[in-house]
Computed example of a mutant assay.
Amino acid sequence: MLLFIGIQASGKSTFYRQRFFDTHMRISLDLLKTRHRETRFLDACLSTQQRFVVDNTNPSREERARYITAARQARFRVIGYFFEPDPSASEQRNAQRDKKQLVPPVGLFGTLKRLQRPSMDEGFDELYLVRALEGRFEVMRQA
C-alpha cells in the first residue's frame, strides 16, 4: 500500500499517474465520492492482495491510522509519500483546475493547518518526502 499525504493540489494525483498508474489501483475520495465506496474498494484491494495507492490528503496521524492498520492486518508493506507543502504553488495549481475540481481556499488552508508530518513510528516500512517541481518530482527517502 502506498499512502499519499499532502494538501490539495500538491501534485499527489499527477505523481500517481506518472509513477504508479500501471502498477497500483487508485483509491481516492475525489473519485469514489463516499467513505462507504472507499471502504468497499479498500476491502477489495486488501482481500485480493491488489497493490493500491490511497490518494487522499490524509493530513493527520489518526486519519492515516485506519489505512495503515488495515494494510498491516492484510500483511501489506506500507509506504508513505509526504508531499512537502508549498501553499502558494498549490493555490496556483488549484486555480488551474476546472470548476468541478476546484477546492475553496478555506479547504486548502484548513488542510494545511491540520497537516502533521508523518513518522516511521506510525507503521510505515518506508517513508519518502516528495517535492513538486516544475513538471517533475524530487523524491527523497526519509530515515
Results as ranks from 00 to 15, higher is better:
residue 88 S to Y: 08
residue 67 Y to H: 13
residue 33 K to T: 09
residue 108 L to Q: 02
residue 60 S to Y: 00
residue 37 R to A: 08
residue 104 P to V: 02
residue 84 E to C: 11
residue 35 R to T: 01
residue 82 F to G: 03
residue 70 A to R: 15
residue 81 Y to I: 10
residue 70 A to C: 11
residue 65 A to Y: 06
residue 106 V to I: 02
residue 85 P to F: 14
residue 83 F to L: 13
residue 66 R to T: 11
residue 100 K to T: 13
residue 94 N to K: 07
residue 51 R to P: 06
residue 99 K to I: 13
residue 109 F to C: 00
residue 89 A to N: 11
residue 84 E to K: 15
residue 32 L to N: 03
residue 56 N to W: 04
residue 100 K to W: 09
residue 57 T to E: 02
residue 34 T to V: 01
residue 55 D to I: 07
residue 91 E to W: 07
residue 78 V to I: 15
residue 89 A to Y: 06
residue 91 E to Y: 10
residue 60 S to I: 09
residue 97 R to Q: 14
residue 82 F to A: 06
residue 43 D to I: 01
residue 84 E to P: 00
residue 85 P to I: 13
residue 45 C to W: 05
residue 50 Q to T: 15
residue 73 Q to L: 15
residue 39 T to E: 09
residue 62 E to C: 01
residue 56 N to Y: 04
residue 48 T to G: 06
residue 99 K to T: 13
residue 49 Q to F: 07
residue 105 P to C: 00
residue 42 L to V: 08
residue 60 S to E: 14
residue 38 E to V: 06
residue 96 Q to R: 15
residue 32 L to D: 05
residue 81 Y to T: 09
residue 34 T to W: 03
residue 70 A to D: 11
residue 103 V to L: 04
residue 64 R to F: 07
residue 92 Q to E: 14
residue 64 R to S: 09
residue 90 S to I: 08
residue 58 N to F: 05
residue 33 K to Y: 03
residue 86 D to K: 13
residue 73 Q to P: 05
residue 105 P to E: 00
residue 52 F to V: 04
residue 32 L to H: 05
residue 44 A to G: 03
residue 65 A to L: 07
residue 91 E to L: 14
residue 29 L to I: 08
residue 46 L to Y: 07
residue 60 S to V: 10
residue 36 H to I: 04
residue 36 H to M: 00
residue 44 A to H: 13
residue 45 C to G: 09
residue 78 V to G: 10
residue 92 Q to S: 12
residue 43 D to M: 04
residue 104 P to W: 02
residue 32 L to V: 07
residue 82 F to V: 10
residue 70 A to F: 10
residue 88 S to L: 14
residue 70 A to K: 15
residue 30 D to R: 02
residue 55 D to H: 08
residue 60 S to K: 14
residue 103 V to Q: 05
residue 101 Q to P: 00
residue 29 L to Q: 10
residue 57 T to R: 02
residue 54 V to C: 09
residue 106 V to F: 01
residue 35 R to L: 05
residue 49 Q to K: 15
residue 79 I to A: 08
residue 57 T to F: 01
residue 46 L to N: 06
residue 108 L to Y: 00
residue 85 P to Y: 14
residue 104 P to L: 01
residue 62 E to M: 05
residue 107 G to D: 04
residue 41 F to A: 09
residue 80 G to H: 08
residue 99 K to H: 11
residue 65 A to S: 12
residue 81 Y to C: 10
residue 51 R to C: 06
residue 42 L to H: 08
residue 89 A to R: 15
